[in-house]
């Protein structure tokens, strides 16, 4: 029986939301094919999340436990995934399209002789091949792409599918892995500006994103306060990452991250296509901008033409009030 394998990333001890989304999709595809839905986890303590993965439909969980996976380094990830693919013999491997996955996908495809469909918005089996819709031209259009072969690797943009529970029993198979660090040709000296431990932007349900309209420390504070009262993750445009006001991990768009929250609030962002490429899949989009002709209003569900320095203080106070009443 063939296997559809979902690659799962562990964040703060749990599978990331984007990982559960691809696992859910893997299960749907496996159901349609009469195939086994399996998951692979690389983590210092990979078996710890096996129960959670069974809850989302993994009938088989391949675990590779090693302290080296506490931080991302491409070589050991490649070695481990190659070993799991050799053991599981999947026909499709689906990954969440994170930076960690983007780092290894090409090399893994060459190593395993796989065809690869990167950063897709949807994926299905069709006439014996794998077909996917991929945003192209800065997400202005979708390209329908098709891959054929015994093994196809697919990475899926965050928010493309819903994570749906489908409880089952999972058989756990620990893949023996020993990585000789002496064979590592690159070294990871340090990780700076780490946001580990906070809500990941791609996983967030509410995102407040800041752009060049946020001109100073006072504006930044307003954005932080709004995010705080909403329990939101903070995103940004490239302009304010470039200026150093926000960290690069916050960047949303073609170069940055893809977000698909229930609610995205863009503050002082013009809505350049390269930014919209990363957020147009949000359920509700609110834009606050002084310029009524700003292109962000073309994708906004609710547009507020106004000065963020005037609108945000009132908005923060009003949200505090409703939350206080609700509590």
């Amino acid at each position: 029986m063939s296997t559809i394998l979902a690659s799962v990333a562990v964040q703060n001890g749990s599978p990331s939301r984007a990982s559960l989304e691809v696992l859910s999709r893997a299960r749907q595809i496996a159901d349609g094919q009469g195939a086994t839905c399996a998951a692979v986890v690389l983590s210092p303590d990979a078996s710890a999340v096996a129960d959670e993965l069974a809850r989302y439909g993994a009938q088989k969980v391949y675990t590779v436990s090693d302290p080296i996976f506490a931080r991302h380094i491409n070589t050991p990830v490649l070695t481990a995934l190659e070993a799991v693919i050799a053991e599981a013999q999947p026909s499709i491997v689906v990954f969440p399209s994170s930076e960690g996955v983007k780092d290894v996908l090409g090399a893994l495809a060459v190593r395993t002789g796989a065809a690869v469909l990167p950063d897709v918005a949807s994926v299905e089996m069709k006439d014996g091949g794998v077909e996917a819709l991929r945003p192209v031209m800065a997400a202005k259009f979708m390209a329908r792409t098709r891959a054929e072969g015994d093994l196809v690797l697919v990475s899926v943009r965050a928010g493309s599918y819903e994570a749906v529970e489908a409880p089952t029993e999972a058989a756990v198979e620990e893949i023996v892995f020993s990585f000789d660090e002496a064979t590592l040709r690159q070294t990871l000296r340090e990780v700076v500006g780490s946001t580990a431990g906070t809500v990941d932007l791609s996983d967030a349900q509410v995102v407040v994103a800041a752009g060049r309209g946020v001109k100073d420390e006072a504006g930044k504070q307003l954005v932080e306060e709004l995010a705080d009262v909403l329990g939101a993750a903070i995103g940004s445009s490239r302009a304010v990452v470039e200026s150093g006001m926000f960290p690069a991990t916050a960047q949303i768009g073609q170069t940055g991250k893809v977000v698909s929250p229930d609610l995205y609030i863009g503050v002082g962002i013009s809505g350049a296509i390269q930014h919209v490429a990363g957020m147009s899949n949000s359920r509700i989009i609110v834009a606050i901008n002084t310029n009524p002709d700003a292109p962000i209003f073309d994708v906004a569900t609710y547009g507020i033409v106004g000065d963020l320095y005037k609108v945000l203080p009132i908005l923060i106070e009003e949200i505090k009030k409703v939350k206080a009443v609700a509590a």
Partner: peptide, 13 residues
């Protein structure tokens, strides 16, 4: 390198 949660400082030969 801009990673998922921070910037990784990687030394390559």
């Amino acid at each position: 390198r801009q990673g998922d949660t921070g910037q990784e400082i990687i030394v390559l030969p």
